[in-house]
């Protein structure tokens, strides 16, 4: 019986989600970009990402180089395609890590309350008082700019927001009647948190995580832009934009193509997240 009801719930969500055309477009773009990232090696070999040719530098888009070439004469199409791996990986990895950390800390704080809540909340407050970008900047400055450190920096700066969100969601859910009921027939705390509280709190958390992927991609790009992110020759999109900035008058296409991809990727996650908000919110059901 329960299985069937669950299936019905997902079908319900999907039905509502489908109604939202923008969200559907977002989903299609998202899938396309994920496919590009997964199949990058088949689309264009990695060698083209790094192979230089002084004679072919700063060429505008052509049949041979669809997106043109950069200042080293590297093929921009190959760089943008392979760049999707870095950007998506950063977005997804940081969001998931921040979510995991946020879930553990936020759920404990929200559920246990008291001293646990106080300690976690105060530490969270400390982190929340520093603008995230500043925190990331300081961490990158301390550790140095490479993929791993960038991920650490962005994750650290977004954990506190997650803790706070999950804490409040859990607190709301924990006060609902069915949790009280579960408590009263003697279910263990762990079971209550993982079987009852978290699943019911999933809506806002899923939405937040989806949308945070897009803001993480943008943060990473921003850090790369002020020279505190991933360093070339890695074709992360923000690094591509940062290289392109210097040539924006002579080779505007260098700024255009990675820009389009970054906007499309961020937008697709935002659209999906927005679509999910409506689809998952039980209060908005009509």
């Amino acid at each position: 019986m329960a299985e069937k009801r669950k299936g019905g719930l997902y079908r319900d969500i999907w039905r509502r989600y489908k109604k939202n055309k923008a969200a559907m477009i977002g989903l299609v773009i998202m899938i396309a970009i994920v496919l590009i990232a997964v199949c990058a090696d088949w689309i264009v070999p990695y060698e083209k990402v790094i192979s230089q040719s002084g004679a072919e530098r700063l060429q505008p888009p052509s049949a041979a180089h669809w997106f043109g070439t950069d200042e080293y004469g590297r093929d921009l199409f190959a760089r943008v395609i392979h760049g999707s791996r870095y950007s998506l990986f950063i977005g997804v990895a940081t969001s998931l890590m921040a979510l995991a950390a946020g879930a553990v800390l936020g759920a404990s704080a929200g559920y246990f309350g008291g001293v646990v809540d106080n300690i976690i909340s105060r530490i969270t407050d400390v982190f929340l008082c520093v603008p995230p970008i500043l925190l990331s900047l300081a961490v990158v400055a301390a550790l140095g700019g490479n993929l791993r450190n960038l991920i650490i920096a962005i994750t650290i700066s977004s954990i506190p927001g997650n803790v706070r969100l999950i804490r409040s969601v859990v607190m709301t859910v924990a006060e609902e009647d069915y949790i009280e009921a579960a408590c009263s027939y003697g279910a263990s705390r762990k079971r209550i948190i993982f079987r009852h509280v978290l699943p019911n709190a999933m809506g806002p958390i899923i939405v937040n995580t989806t949308m945070s992927i897009s803001s993480m991609i943008l943060s990473a790009a921003g850090l790369s832009f002020i020279g505190m992110g991933i360093q070339p020759p890695s074709p992360e999109w923000g690094a591509l934009l940062s290289e392109a900035e210097a040539y924006m008058f002579t080779a505007p296409y260098m700024l255009l193509f990675p820009g389009i991809f970054i906007v499309l990727a961020a937008l697709s996650f935002n659209l999906v997240g927005d679509g999910l908000t409506d689809a998952l919110d039980p209060k908005l059901r009509n």
């Binding site: 109604k19 055309k21 923008a22 897009s214 803001s215 943008l218 790009a221 921003g222 832009f225 002020i226 923000g238 934009l241 900035e245 924006m248 700024l255 820009g259 970054i262 906007v263 961020a266 937008l267 935002n270 659209l271 927005d274």
Partner: peptide, 26 residues
């Protein structure tokens, strides 16, 4: 809700939120 205007507003806002700040500035 769900009118053309609604979609337009939401999508425009989302597009703006998806553009890297420095890129928009330039």
């Amino acid at each position: 809700q769900y009118s053309v205007l609604d979609h337009f507003c939401v999508i425009t806002a989302l597009v703006f939120a998806s553009v890297p700040g420095f890129w928009l500035a330039l």
